[in-house]
Amino acid sequence: MRKQLHVNLFEMNCVSHIVHGLWVHPENNRHRFNDLDYWTELAQLLEYGTFDGVFLADVIGTYDQFRDGPETALREGMQIPSNDPLLVIPAMAAVTRNLGFGATFSTTYEPPFAFARRMSTLDHLTKGRVGWNIVTSYLPNAARNFGHDTEVVHDHRYEIADEYLDVLYKLWEGSWDDDAVIQDRERRVYTDPSKVRYIDHVGEHFKVAGPHLCQPSRQRTPVLFQAT
């Protein structure tokens, strides 16, 4: 039996992702990462090449341990400057029909309620073509950027992540019934209130009342994956 080949592009919304220094090549295009046209052109090229998807990596701090500072990373363009990976996805989705999108987001430093809404919005805008790479973040600089004196201990980060996912599942899967939105113009009822509920989550790390602000998206819970 013939096997099907699945091809995915590994990218990052920055000037230099993995192949550091390639931005100096005379045919370089990386310096355009701040331009939306760069991402829409890339999406169209991937769709034309029948790629299954594009995965956008991310970090929320800079590499400043080498030589006790960020100078080398800044000088060489090593994942800095970098932009939010989530914000280019709607534009890429608008110019494609089949391309899937995966993006990295950390469970350690930002609250789950806001992220749940962000991902549901992306799932709506992409018509169910979005996935989430779950990370807990490891850079000491990332910890300092979000008010911590030092990096959150590894096992504790994953304890936070476990509850983070619990909150998200409650928001994505349990807050709205599939048929909650009825759009009854005659009775002026957009959503049936009896089919939307608070989640009233109270845990060790998070306290979230709900309800989820987004109506159910195509996937409800996006494709979830994690690097091994």
Rank of each mutant, 00 (worst) to 15 (best):
L171A: 09
H154T: 08
G174S: 14
V153T: 11
N133V: 06
N141V: 01
I182F: 06
L122Q: 10
T126H: 01
G174N: 14
D184V: 07
Q183K: 14
L139S: 08
F146E: 10
V130H: 04
K127R: 12
T126Y: 09
D179T: 10
R187L: 13
L122F: 06
P140S: 13
N141Q: 14
R129C: 10
V152Y: 03
V153H: 12
V153R: 13
R157W: 05
W132R: 03
D184H: 12
Y169P: 00
V167T: 11
V130Q: 07
A180M: 07
N141I: 01
T126E: 03
G147C: 01
E159S: 13
G128M: 06
V135Q: 03
Y164C: 10
N133T: 10
R129A: 06
A143R: 00
T136K: 00
H148R: 12
T136L: 02
K170R: 15
V135R: 02
L165S: 08
E159H: 12
T150K: 12
Y158T: 04
G174V: 00
L168N: 09
R185L: 14
D184K: 07
H154K: 11
V181H: 04
D123T: 02
E173P: 00
R157N: 10
K170Q: 15
Y138T: 11
V189H: 03
D123S: 09
V181W: 01
T150N: 09
T150H: 13
D166E: 15
L165C: 13
Q183I: 12
Y164K: 02
L122M: 04
V130W: 06
D178W: 01
K127I: 00
R129H: 06
L171G: 07
Y138F: 15
V152H: 02
D177K: 09
L171Y: 04
D184A: 09
V189W: 05
V130C: 05
I134G: 09
W176H: 04
E151C: 01
E159N: 14
V189P: 01
E186R: 10
E163S: 08
L125E: 03
G174W: 01
V189A: 04
K127N: 15
D184F: 08
A161E: 05
S137T: 13
N141T: 15
A142P: 05
Y164R: 02
D123C: 07
E151K: 11
E151T: 12
F146S: 07
R188N: 14
Y158F: 13
W132C: 10
R185P: 00
L139W: 05
W176K: 10
D155L: 10
W172T: 04
H124P: 05
V181I: 13
V130Y: 05
A142T: 14
L125P: 03
D178F: 08
I182A: 09
T191M: 07
V167P: 01
L171R: 05
R129T: 10
S175L: 08
F146M: 09
D166A: 14
D166G: 09
G147V: 04
D149N: 14
A143Y: 02
D155Y: 05
S175I: 05
V189N: 05
N145I: 11
D179Q: 02
K170G: 14
V152F: 05
A143W: 05
H124G: 03
N133Y: 03
T136G: 07
S175M: 02
R185M: 11
R185F: 11
